[in-house]
């Protein structure tokens, strides 16, 4: 009982803290100086339509590298915690309709995922969303009970290949453009504004991130849900 009163007191205190913040909150009318510099640089220096992509891949590229590392560590952690145990429980087979339809949809979902992460610099979306779509395609096969043997060596190969290549593109910037240019996308030609092959190395980097995220999340899903 006394615990519940304390919880309520804490929540009421939180509300009282928020009320002055909400009352005196004034919305900005203009972009801050840093943001408008990012927008201008995205047009003039990088040829990228999607400013969010240029912030994620270029201006805050090291953060994204860290994020991918966190995902990798999560995969390792989940794999360590949920080691395979033999489980033999009777499960109901899925219906024939779902099996056929998931074989049909599987390829289309993967194609959509590839579309999302190759067009990360032109339309919303990018490596993370495309990677999740690829995971979803494999998940549909797990759910529909289609007999698919996961080939773990290919999955691990794709993951480590894309990770190594991602870091190597960063190091190329080091080598070609000199110091302070780790993960600089201008090592490739910038191309015409608004076309698919533009914005330097940004589409390449985002595709590699997409492949890496897709294979890592597929491993997590398989560890948590597979037999």
């Amino acid at each position: 009982m006394i615990k519940r009163i304390f919880i309520l007191l804490a929540l009421v205190g939180l509300v009282l803290m928020f009320i002055p913040f909400l009352r005196d909150f004034d919305f900005h009318k203009e972009l801050s100086k840093l943001s408008s510099q990012y927008v201008e640089g995205s047009i003039n220096d990088l040829n990228t339509q999607n400013v969010v992509t240029s912030v994620i891949v270029t201006y805050r590229g090291l953060d994204t590298l860290g994020e991918v590392t966190v995902l990798f560590l999560t995969t390792a952690g989940v794999g360590f915690l949920l080691r395979k145990k033999k489980a033999s429980l009777k499960t109901r087979r899925s219906s024939e309709l779902l099996q056929t339809a998931s074989q049909f949809l599987f390829v289309l979902i993967i194609l959509t995922g590839i579309f999302i992460f190759t067009h990360g610099h032109l339309t919303p979306g990018g490596g993370f969303q495309g990677g999740v779509l690829i995971t979803t395609a494999f998940l549909l096969l797990i759910l529909a009970d289609v007999n698919l043997k996961f080939n773990y060596s290919i999955l691990h190969f794709v993951e480590s290949f894309s990770g190594v290549f991602y870091v190597m593109i960063g190091l190329f910037g080091f080598l070609i453009l000199g110091m302070n240019s780790f993960l600089d996308p201008t090592i490739l030609p910038l191309g015409n504004y608004g076309k698919l092959l533009s914005a330097g190395a940004i589409p390449v980097i985002y595709s590699l991130i997409g492949l890496k995220v897709g294979s890592e999340l597929t491993t997590i899903i398989d560890k948590m849900g597979g037999e």
Binding site: L108, L111, T112, I114, F115, T118, H119, K195, L196, L197
Partner: peptide, 20 residues
């Protein structure tokens, strides 16, 4: 499906053919 998604620019068609 790729062309319906991406449009008919020639770069898009080439990349789409490679991916398909």
């Amino acid at each position: 499906v790729w062309i319906l998604l991406a449009g008919t620019n020639h770069q898009e068609i080439i990349i789409g053919a490679i991916v398909s």
